[in-house]
């Protein structure tokens, strides 16, 4: 749509600007403030320069958490995106099945995140949970509390359970927007099932897939509540992701300077990713 130039539009944006500035810029400035200061208590602060950043960027703990988080996000994307596409391709296109599928599949997306954690914490328990109990009965030595591998599997399956539907819904929305004419043309050309997917369905899902990939990447990169409730970051530190580590540092250990420096590094990464997201999106829109 052609938009007219009008600087008075700023007045309409002003309330949003003020509100978000209050909840974003002031807190961020607090973080910046802490990240360059040190204290001996009593609200006595002195300049520390880049000390905290040095410490964070050279601490194994930070890089390990970062590494775990990147591995986690990668696994999540590798599983959820293809699975989501596959399920969306097999969804009914009309009839009573459509609303039923949509509503049931969207349900996990609407459950409070800590309840998701609670559900899986209970579900995976070997004494009272269906999953843990069944796996034990089948002879697996499953225990997500003590075994790092089982803990990872549980957290990943939980995330697949929680968020694959998002990919499904987005892909499905992309799929139903393809006119039948495209399929008929493909039929006349004698296209195979794969060719239809590769040359008709996938290009038409481009935009929604882009959104799905980026949302899934960012949300899994800042996941906190679900693994925190299920594993508490354990056993040991094996499921301590960046957010969990940050909250531990800030509220658990009350290590303000380090936590603030970490927040800033973390936020800069997110900013960079958002920028990539935004650039790709707007470039894509311009192409269309």
């Amino acid at each position: 749509m052609e938009r007219t130039w009008n600087n008075k539009a700023w007045f309409m944006v002003l309330p949003v600007l003020l509100l978000v500035a209050f909840s974003a810029i002031i807190p961020l400035m607090t973080v910046v403030n802490y990240s360059v200061q040190d204290t001996f208590g009593n609200n006595d602060f002195f300049w520390a320069g880049s000390e905290w950043f040095d410490e964070i960027l050279h601490s194994d703990r930070f890089w390990e958490a970062m590494g775990r988080n990147l591995v986690f996000s990668a696994i999540i994307l590798i599983i959820e995106i293809p699975l989501g596409i596959f399920i969306a391709l097999n969804m009914p296109k009309k009839g009573w099945g459509v609303p039923v599928c949509l509503v049931l599949m969207a349900l996990p997306l609407l459950i409070p995140w800590n309840v998701v954690g609670t559900i899986w914490q209970v579900f995976g328990r070997v004494d009272i949970g269906l999953l843990g109990y069944s796996l034990r009965a089948l002879g697996f030595n499953y225990n997500y509390v003590n075994d790092p591998f089982d803990a990872w599997i549980t957290v990943i399956v939980m995330d697949v359970w929680h968020w694959t539907s998002l990919v499904v819904l987005l892909c499905y929305a992309g799929l139903v927007s393809i006119p039948d004419a495209y399929y008929q043309a493909a039929k006349i050309d004698g296209a195979s099932r794969w060719a239809i997917f590769r040359y008709i369905q996938l290009p038409k899902m481009n935009r929604v897939l882009l959104i799905a990939v980026l949302l899934r990447f960012m949300d899994s990169f800042m996941i906190y509540t679900e693994p925190f409730v299920v594993t508490g970051g354990g056993p040991g530190n094996t499921t301590t992701f960046l957010s969990i580590d940050l909250v531990k540092l800030a509220i658990g250990e009350f290590n303000l300077g380090e936590a603030a420096a970490m927040s800033i590094v973390y936020f800069l990464i997110i900013m960079l990713l958002s920028w990539v997201f935004y650039t790709v999106m707007t470039a894509y829109d311009a192409e269309q």
């Binding site: 009008n6 600087n7 539009a9 969990i244 973390y266």
Partner: peptide
């Protein structure tokens, strides 16, 4: 409906807040 000074930057800034980790 409108283009105005800094609209794109503002929109991008809003997006970063949607993507900000609550832990921060």
């Amino acid at each position: 409906r409108y283009r105005f000074l800094g609209d794109k930057h503002l929109f991008f800034w809003l997006l970063t807040n949607r993507m900000a980790p609550p832990a921060v």
